[in-house]
């Protein structure tokens, strides 16, 4: 079966600075891969390159989703094709009502698939049900997108969007950062509920802690723009113990 995602010798720059320096990674359907690495190693850059953010220029290599290169696709096209990025720093949208935002996102995907726009009542019901699983109350749903949300609320709201959009590939960028133990549990449970044979995830984290809750199939260590080591979930524990020092040379 064609892998869901194939990253082949991917090089990318921001401005004139090369950040990603030859990444190779294959993710099959249903697999969870963790990317760990020190700050500044290029984890967020990789998430932006995958999701198609402007200003992140691919200078070499390719990214295939279901066997097709996605590099020529815009961010919104990739999203409708099943890509989802949970942001490390979710963006506040003052004046944009949460429910209209969620509905616009869901409808964009439905229209793309030739389906009708979702029924308003049905939609509200669906959002409420999924929000409840993530301990997101109605009051939070009524606010402008991410405005006045705490760090933990923002992360839960990202997972709510993922639950509504049902992506094939979810890239979770440091979804654990800024979360206390309880919030981490809620978010991880939310993510685990979305584990599915047809859904793959790329879980980016700085700390091993998250991977106790979202147990990955594979762990990769990214340092200085390149994957330096790959292994099973034990690799995360090993790195936790020995730290990232010296990992650059281990490739």
């Amino acid at each position: 079966m064609t892998p869901l995602l194939e990253i082949k010798d991917l090089h990318a720059s921001v401005g004139d600075t090369p950040i990603l320096k030859g990444i190779n990674l294959t993710i099959n359907h249903g697999e969870i891969h963790a990317i760990m690495g020190p700050n500044g190693s290029g984890k967020s850059t990789m998430s932006y390159v995958l999701s198609g953010r402007d200003g992140y220029e691919v200078t070499g290599g390719d990214v295939l989703m279901n066997g097709q290169s996605i590099l020529e696709m815009e961010a919104d096209e990739r999203a409708r094709a099943g890509m989802f990025l949970a942001f490390q720093y979710p963006v506040e949208l003052p004046g944009v009502a949460g429910m209209s935002f969620l509905r616009a996102a869901v409808n964009a995907r439905r229209l793309d698939k030739g389906e009708d726009e979702i029924d308003q009542l049905e939609f509200v019901k669906m959002v409420r049900a999924k929000a409840k699983d993530l301990s997101i109350d109605d009051e939070m749903l009524k606010r402008a997108v991410n405005v006045g949300f705490s760090g933990g609320e923002k992360k839960r709201y990202e997972i709510l969007q993922m639950a509504l959009l049902e992506p094939q590939l979810a890239v979770l960028d440091e979804t654990d950062s800024g979360l206390d133990v309880d919030a981490l549990k809620i978010v991880s449970e939310g993510v685990n509920m979305l584990r599915d044979a047809n859904r793959s995830m790329l879980v980016i984290t700085h700390y091993q802690r998250l991977l106790n809750h979202i147990v990955p199939d594979y762990v990769h260590i990214l340092a200085n723009g390149k994957i330096r080591r790959s292994g099973g979930k034990e690799l995360a524990l090993e790195v936790e113990e020995s730290g990232y020092a010296g990992i650059d040379d281990a490739a």
């Binding site: 999701s51 198609g52 953010r53 402007d54 200003g55 815009e74 961010a75 919104d76 999203a79 409708r80 989802f84 990025l85 942001f87 979710p90 963006v91 949208l93 935002f101 616009a104 996102a105 964009a108 995907r109 793309d112 969007q161 959009l165």
Partner: peptide
């Protein structure tokens, strides 16, 4: 704001 636009388009909403 470019970041706000990217947040929206990354959800599948057209530019």
């Amino acid at each position: 704001d470019e970041t706000q636009l990217f947040y929206l388009t990354s959800r599948g909403i057209s530019p």
